[in-house]
Design a binder for these strands. Structure first.
Length: 787
DNA sequence: TTAGGGTTAG
């Protein structure tokens, strides 16, 4: 139902306009809504200003600044039969959501600037706001304001707020000669390193003079990018232009220095400030806290309280790191006491900081309860919670929370998407990953480097290496992480040669390889059996790039040599490693190589080291036991098994996941819980017969000699991957590829069996096990039986 | 009578 129209009496005469001026003054002085209502009533009753939009504009703006409901503003506006552009613009400035029809007829640059500003001050992350921003942008371009600096900075800020960096840049680029404020808008919205690039371009262009705001933003960017050299340049520039003493610039410098651990410089700057404000205090307190200077942090906090400033939520966030070592409960108590003492409202900032902290402490329940208690969740709080789940391995929870966001029509930003994709990658759930990809496309969400790289990683880990590569090839500006993701993807899928080719391509593109790059390449060499290449890359890394090998590089090297049977060379190499790099991983790699090459002497040495370093891991006992069994050293095998039993070590039960359509199905060894269990087992029997016809030999009883009765029974049981594959074959059309995910490494018999299955059924079978991918096609596995 | 940008903290 439309709101009722106010009935206006005819206008009265006001010679000279004296009455009008006093009326406008009264409006400006009103401090309550009731006061304004009375003024409105007076003017209506007397018949003044019925057709005069100026007093109405003043009233409307005053109502708006006193937070009158939008309904009320609209009603006032509609009471005027002939609103002029000032009145229309005032309404645009005051309404929280865009009403495009209010722009017409003949919108001016004020209209667009007002509308954009009001949208960005009210926009949450609802999906509709992005659409409204695009509408507004389109209309402003159509009206000829694409190069207006005022409109552009308001629009750019709006896009930044909606996490649409591309669109903000587009707005900026459309302006031929940006002024200082437009540059500043860009600098404030861009992520650290990009903002620093923009600062350089601004200075080089030389058409707009940087001011204190420019420098403050650039220092923020330098701190974010941990780019001390650029930070010093900005500082120097500030000194040259006489802007270095500006309060915001000094605060930015303090934060830069404390980010880089130089608390002396930060403190020096603070001490020189004549009258430091709350932000400056917060910056220094935070610097002390994150650098572990607890006493200084607390001292300065006391000084702050004594100086008359009232701490705000940023102050609280700045001291949180000081309290964090006390553990969860004490932390909560300390913070509560803090909040009570300074009569502080714990707002979204504090809740998000607490959520992040609990996530870091691995206490996901506390994190979630704080998150759930937030009445208005911010983008940052959603992201903190989702990435907390993803990083703590609670991948299903991460995806579930993302689904909740979708249901609530909260638009995700690139950070949300990256975290969710990382959860999908860990899960290996291709259908979920594709669903997220579809959302990106459908909602036209921003595809930045982080999102594209997360997509590559997701497709790699969900088994679609081809899809990952096609995304990689479509990327305009790949960073080193994107290259690493793709290289390690080839490694994971056993395509060592492709990985090396890409590594060379990366060097040709003048991208500086990092420690992770070398790890990915070495990993690819190990999974592809490329021994010489691996050794060469390792030498290049240490000699040419001066990167000292970490635990994982060393483990990879032992793996590479060990798999090739060069066990003694591997042992020699271990003695050359830095002591810090020799952990369970290195000896574990040697032990698995020993079991493959049946060297029980070295295996004994490796396992002795392992039992010292990591005595609680059942996997090593299993490896050693299997080695002894295969060499028919049954008594030694029995000793190892008894030892494992004495220590009450339990093997992780194996399970396998397969997705049919969008539905996941999980199988355990020998389980009969699946509703189609009967059909699966009878199909598997028929299949085994065909496989045996083709030459398959199941693990024979002889190999199981000496296994205790109970275990023997267990070992002849059907492993979970066979069940999953059989179910997959039953439930899909001939020719469809089968993808399964196993939580442990695939066993010898299953690996062999899968080769035969791929041959007799003519299907491509992709298996992701705990360490890599196997692509089985026509009786051959991509790993070359080398895993 | 009506514009656009900033420092700390998640």
């Amino acid at each position: 139902m439309p709101p009722p129209r106010l009935v206006l009496p005819p206008p009265a005469v006001d010679p000279g306009g004296g009455l009008r001026r006093s009326y406008l003054r009264l409006v400006a002085l009103s401090s309550t809504l009731r006061h304004l209502d009375q003024l409105l009533a007076v003017s209506l009753a007397s018949g003044h200003y019925a057709l005069d939009p100026a007093p109405a504009t003043a009233l409307l703006l005053r109502y708006s600044s006193l937070r009158a409901p939008p309904r009320h503003l609209l009603r006032l506006f509609r009471a005027f039969p002939r609103p002029d552009r000032f009145l229309r613009n005032a309404l645009l400035r005051s309404l929280p959501s865009l009403r495009p029809h209010l722009l017409f007829p003949s919108p001016d640059s004020f209209s667009f600037a007002f509308a954009a500003t009001s949208l960005s001050s009210s926009c949450s992350s609802r999906g509709n706001d992005a659409a409204a921003a695009r509408t507004l942008h389109g209309l402003s371009v159509a009206a000829g304001y694409a190069s207006d600096t005022f409109v552009a900075s308001a629009l750019a800020k709006l896009y930044f707020k909606l996490s649409r960096v591309h669109d903000a840049r587009k707005v900026f680029d459309a302006v031929p000669s940006p002024d200082t404020i437009l540059w500043n808008t860009l600098l404030a919205g861009l992520p650290g390193s990009e903002a620093l690039d923009a600062f350089v371009r601004m200075v080089e262009a030389g058409r707009a003079r940087p001011d204190s705001t420019t420098l403050a933003s650039s220092l923020r960017a330098a701190a974010e990018a941990s780019h001390m050299a650029m930070g010093r340049c900005v500082h120097g520039y500030g000194v040259k232009c006489g802007l270095a003493e500006h309060e915001h610039v000094v605060t930015g410098l303090m934060s830069l220095y404390s980010k880089c651990g130089d608390m002396d410089s930060a403190q020096f700057l603070f001490d020189r400030m004549e009258d430091p404000d709350l932000v400056a205090y917060n910056a220094l307190i935070s610097g002390y806290s994150v650098n572990g200077m607890v006493e200084s942090s607390v001292e300065l906090f006391k000084e702050l309280a004594a100086s008359g400033w009232r701490p705000n939520s940023s102050t609280l966030v700045a001291v949180i790191p000081v309290y964090s070592p006390f553990g969860h409960e004490l932390l909560a108590q300390c913070l509560h006491a803090f909040v009570v003492k300074v009569r502080l409202d714990a707002d979204a900032l504090v809740s998000t900081a607490m959520t992040t902290l609990y996530c870091r402490l691995n206490d996901m329940e506390s994190a979630r309860s704080i998150f759930d208690a937030m009445p208005e969740k911010t983008m940052e709080s959603w992201n903190a919670m989702i990435s907390g789940y993803a990083q703590n391995g609670l991948t299903e929870m991460a995806v579930a929370l993302f689904q909740l966001m979708q249901e609530l029509n909260v638009q995700p930003n690139p950070t949300t998407i990256s975290s969710t994709l990382s959860a999908c990658a860990q899960l290996g759930a291709l259908s979920l990953g594709k669903w997220v990809h579809r959302i990106i496309t459908k909602e036209n969400l921003e595809l930045n480097v982080y999102v594209m790289t997360a997509l590559i990683d997701m497709y790699v880990k969900c088994g679609s290496i081809a899809e990952a590569r096609s995304i990689f090839d479509r990327m305009d500006n790949k960073n080193v992480v994107s290259w690493n993701a793709m290289i390690s993807g080839y490694g994971l899928h056993g395509q060592g040669a492709e990985a090396l080719k890409l590594y060379k391509g990366m060097l040709d593109a003048c991208i500086l390889p990092t420690s992770s790059t070398f790890l990915s390449v070495l990993y690819a060499c190990s999974h592809g059996g490329l021994v010489d290449e691996g050794q060469k890359v390792f030498r290049v890394m240490t000699n040419e790039y001066r990167i000292s090998p970490g635990i994982e590089h060393c483990t990879c090297m032992v793996d590479i040599l060990g798999r090739a049977g060069k066990l003694n060379e591997a042992l020699d190499l271990i003695s050359e490693f830095p002591q810090s790099a020799i952990g369970p991983g290195v000896w574990g790699a040697l032990l698995s190589a020993c079991t493959v090459h049946k060297n029980s002497d070295l295996a004994k040495l490796a396992s002795q080291k392992l039992f010292e370093l990591d005595s609680e891991n059942a996997g090593y006992y299993v490896l050693l036991c299997n080695l002894y069994t295969s060499k028919k050293h049954y008594s030694e095998a029995a000793v190892v098994r008894q030892e494992a039993k004495n220590r009450k070590l339990v093997k992780t039960p194996g399970c396998t996941l397969i997705e049919i359509g969008d539905k996941p199905h999980v199988f355990m060894a020998a389980d009969r819980f699946h509703p189609q269990s009967e059909a699966i087992y009878s199909y598997l029997e028929k299949l085994t017969a065909k496989m045996i016809e083709a030459g398959y030999q199941p693990v024979t009883e002889a190999a199981l000699y000496d296994v205790e009765e109970e275990e023997k029974e267990h070992m002849v049981k059907v492993h979970s991957e066979k069940l999953a594959i059989a179910f997959g074959l039953l439930s899909t059309e001939p020719g469809t590829e089968i993808r399964i995910i196993k939580n442990l490494r695939v066993c010898l018999d299953c690996h062999n069996a899968t080769k035969f299955i791929s041959k007799v059924t003519q299907r491509l079978i992709v298996v992701r096990d705990a360490s890599r991918f196997h692509h089985f096609r026509d009786g051959v596995c991509s790993c070359g039986d080398y895993w």
